[in-house]
Design a protein around this nucleic acid. Structure first.
Lengths: 184, 184
DNA sequence: TCGCTCATGTAATGGGTTACATGATTCA
DNA sequence: TGAATCATGTAACCCATTACATGAGCGA
């Protein structure tokens, strides 16, 4: 699956593994994340499969860059994936919910501590979706006007992220109140 | 992490890998899922670490069961984990959002097809949280009254799931409307 | 001078899925 | 008769993280 994120970005323009990592951090990180090491190994695999090709771009005073370009086979593969309907729902894994689920024997204070810390984290994340993400998009469009038509689709995913964090904050606030007032 | 889900259930009462799988499917599946094969290998590992012990329970007309019991070391480990504050947020991975993000070159109809199918799936899931989950809890409590005090904590996680699916359905409905009306 | 950014990669390990293998009982 | 439930496990594989290794330039 990381495969398609990489091909998607390379459709915008040829770039290096490092570039792909910074793009991901700035945009898809909230719904698809990968470490640099995985990006490098995946690109190598994609090249072996003929979906991308690479060439070295020498630089002065900095390490050389290996720049990847999508091939026609890569574009066809990507388009095929986009059209394949997704019949499964996203798999959620949330350690906090596991702690809450098994929280009874531990007693309310231990669970409240966990919940309050997460509330702080999710409030920051919400602020990030509301302020930083739109700024970053503006910044990208200023530099690369060709990208502009894509941003309406990006915005839809940002809205999801914002709504999700709002929900998480609300649930945490409610849950904390319920445990504080109603649980022994 | 699956480790702690298994220890958490075994704290309720000794049971087999198969039992653990059915418990998970009925309760934690929405925020922590595991296949049977992984449950079996994890239990084996936990036994090697001394956190659980097992014995064979012969049965007539059915395969024998290997029943696991938590040790004191296992209980201590579990309690330690519950108290360790979680400083990270859950990692989301959502293929649908990747498709939306990169959806522009594909054109609106392809993305709309994806969104409509997911809307159907998430509506069913929402109904499940609202109807089936409370029923199952009632069923468990009827059979094992000792479990009752835990169910208030379970209910908090069910509320999260319900709110999450509501949000997902709302976002899908809005997003479909936006694309249908405003996108070319 | 210390840490950050730029830049690429490999190796070991861990977490998780898929496929394989077995076999009796029960219900439609 | 065929599928589902009960019941356990192993082996191969894939995806992902952590740790390791290298090294120049730049700003505080």
């Amino acid at each position: 699956m990381l495969k398609y994120v990489l091909l998607g970005f390379l459709n915008y323009q040829p770039m290096s593994g490092y570039d792909l990592s910074t793009w991901m951090e700035a945009s898809t990180d909230n719904f698809w994340h990968a470490k640099l090491s995985q990006i490098y190994t995946t690109l190598k695999k994609l090249e072996k499969e003929g979906l991308v090709v690479s060439h070295i771009e020498p630089q002065e005073g900095r390490p050389d860059r290996r720049v990847y370009t999508v091939t026609k086979a890569g574009q066809a593969d990507f388009n095929g994936w986009l059209q394949t309907t997704l019949t499964e729902m996203p798999v959620k894994k949330d350690e906090l919910l596991v702690k809450v689920f098994f929280g009874f024997p531990a007693g309310k204070e231990i669970i409240l501590t966990q919940l309050r810390l997460q509330l702080d984290l999710h409030r920051r994340k919400l602020a990030q979706y509301q302020a930083e993400t739109p700024e970053m998009v503006q910044h990208i469009v200023d530099k690369m006007p060709d990208i502009a038509p894509h941003t309406r689709y990006w915005e839809l995913t940002r809205q999801f992220g914002e709504a999700y964090e709002k929900l998480y904050v609300d649930w945490l606030e409610n849950t904390i109140a319920i445990i504080e007032n109603d649980f022994e």
